[in-house]
Nucleic acid binder design. Sequence first.
DNA 1: TCATAGTTGTTAGAGCCTCTAACACCAGCA
DNA 2: TGCTGGTGTTAGAGGCTCTAACAACTATGA
Lengths: 245, 245
Amino acid sequence: MPAGPTANPMRARFRRQVRDDVKRVALGQLATGGPQAISLNAIARELGVSGPALYRYVAGRDELLTALVVDAYDDLRDALAGALEAGAPPASARAARPVTRVARAYRQWALAQPHRYDLLFKPPIPGYDAHADERATAARSLMGVLLAASTASVPGGASAPDAEPGGAPPAYSHDAVLAERGSGSARFGLAVSVWSCLHGVASLECGGSFAAMRLDADALFEREVQVLEERIARSGPGSAAPSPG
Amino acid sequence: MPAGPTANPMRARFRRQVRDDVKRVALGQLATGGPQAISLNAIARELGVSGPALYRYVAGRDELLTALVVDAYDDLRDALAGALEAGAPPASARAARPVTRVARAYRQWALAQPHRYDLLFKPPIPGYDAHADERATAARSLMGVLLAASTASVPGGASAPDAEPGGAPPAYSHDAVLAERGSGSARFGLAVSVWSCLHGVASLECGGSFAAMRLDADALFEREVQVLEERIARSGPGSAAPSPG
DNA sequence: TCATAGTTGTTAGAGCCTCTAACACCAGCA
DNA sequence: TGCTGGTGTTAGAGGCTCTAACAACTATGA
């Protein structure tokens, strides 16, 4: 595997595309057989190439896994951002509130690819936190959208620091997320609470726990989102409960 | 591996103990290296026996994994039940409310063994739901304790169908859990909400998401539990929001 | 035009894993 | 004494990850 980025731009593009192919096949394996089913050998076979060739493009199985995690975070973030923008002010008045929209998108994303979703929350191996930084960065990026959504759902507090004139809720930039956390604002705490709640419901449903009890997951989810929105409404711009952090 | 239970009771006891040894070593591997680190070969080595010998006691790696899952559910349930009983009426008046006690025990159990906790919520492999029944039964058993705790935390609604005269909150029996779900009661819905919330926070913390953002997980958790208790208090015995089911 | 350096593929193989097959041993019992 | 069932062994098939050594191809500069 070449150390740095190849000088030749054609080569660079080629390398990028092969890497994407590898990840695409890996995603398929992940979907059908879980993380255990991801095998570099099998990927190579499917790509019509023989075994060790892949090591020119991927450092190893672990590196591939973390790449999948980072991609998943980004993909989920984009999905949520899309749902958030889809109902921004110049939209139908009947559009659901921001957090509700984002929550539904979150659940749908998780349900559509449960193993990929599950991958995001695997506990790290103690004493071996490889790639922890990349994961953390991607997670903060996701938090940015949740932060924007929670802020937009607070009645009277819809406009955030860098809101655009058009009124669309801003997807918080990475730096803004850091600043918001640092300030220990209630906004950030609320966003974390939203994430916890969404993750709890989505993860249990993905894991099959609801199905095992024959629960109506749709109704359950909608009720939780409703509770969440009420909680956000209660914690209006006046209340200033300090956020942990 | 012998098909049925061995006739000889000495043999049976021995078999059970060896199986426990296997699971004990597997738990160690799980704690230090995650599920991927669980290896029958390595377990055999550690037990001073050679490879295939373990197949006399364990059908295979998958079966061992599900056994670990079921055991974990039972262990977690016992921990929660202990926390629930620890503050039952003939206890200090300063004891926290039932759901708060159970919530703290839940979090501590998960944090003490993150990979074991994570194991409980792995999405099943599509089209291959081996041992789904055992898992579901164990999960319902866990729900029983959460149901008892939620019920006990509702002001004025502390006594449950089969409450003991002493006033100790009952750990719902398996049948009672099924009946309660079937009735579509608000109690059951509340218990599921409690579980979702607890799982959301515990899972995110186990996965390192909070640490990645330098959040104060203690404060965050306590606040969520507080919100949960308030929600339970609001949904007093009067309100009868139907539960999904 | 040709040599050279860098990139990308190949096969061979070490070492791990799961799990099966075939065989040896040993206790209890008719 | 010989049989049976439980338990261990080794051998081995087939999979995996990943490294090493080598062949081929490509772009570039003399």
